[in-house]
Amino acid sequence: MNNAELREKLKTHIINAVSESMEMFFVDAEHMGEYLDYSEGIDWINMDALYAEILIFFPFSGELRLIMPRQLVVTMAENVYSMEEEPSEQILDDLIAETLNVIAGRLLASMLPPSERFKFGLPELGEDSFLETDAFSEAVDFDAEGIPLWVVACGEGFLEYV
């Protein structure tokens, strides 16, 4: 399989993992095909986004990032907790961290052989948690009922193990 085919395969795993994970929060997230590219250089942060990152330790070193507009995390909190008042910052932080945790688990479980064990760290929050790296990365954008979100897989190991 060449590099482009490996990237496409990884992308499919990411799309499935995100779509299934977002169903937990009663949100339909569909990959719409680069309708809004993720780029760390662009000031898209104006949209008031929340950031989470999780490190993968085994069987390869990598990093998975989740970027969601606050509005989407609020919607997810309202759906899950049936809240009428604005959810607290703590709830929003917990929610995006748990979302990434679930996505990471589903992604690794689907891309690795069933017998393969994997290990990842605890989700960290905030833009500052993102590692600066020149390593391979695959960013996948989603439309969650009109709101964009991104998942970024960083590290050559993703291509090696997919």
Partner: peptide, 18 residues
């Protein structure tokens, strides 16, 4: 699977039930 109304209906129903 663009504009998947079936899935959206399902999620909306489950959200209301929840």
């Amino acid at each position: 699977f663009r504009f998947n109304v079936g899935k959206r209906n399902t999620l909306a129903v489950k959200k209301c039930l929840w």
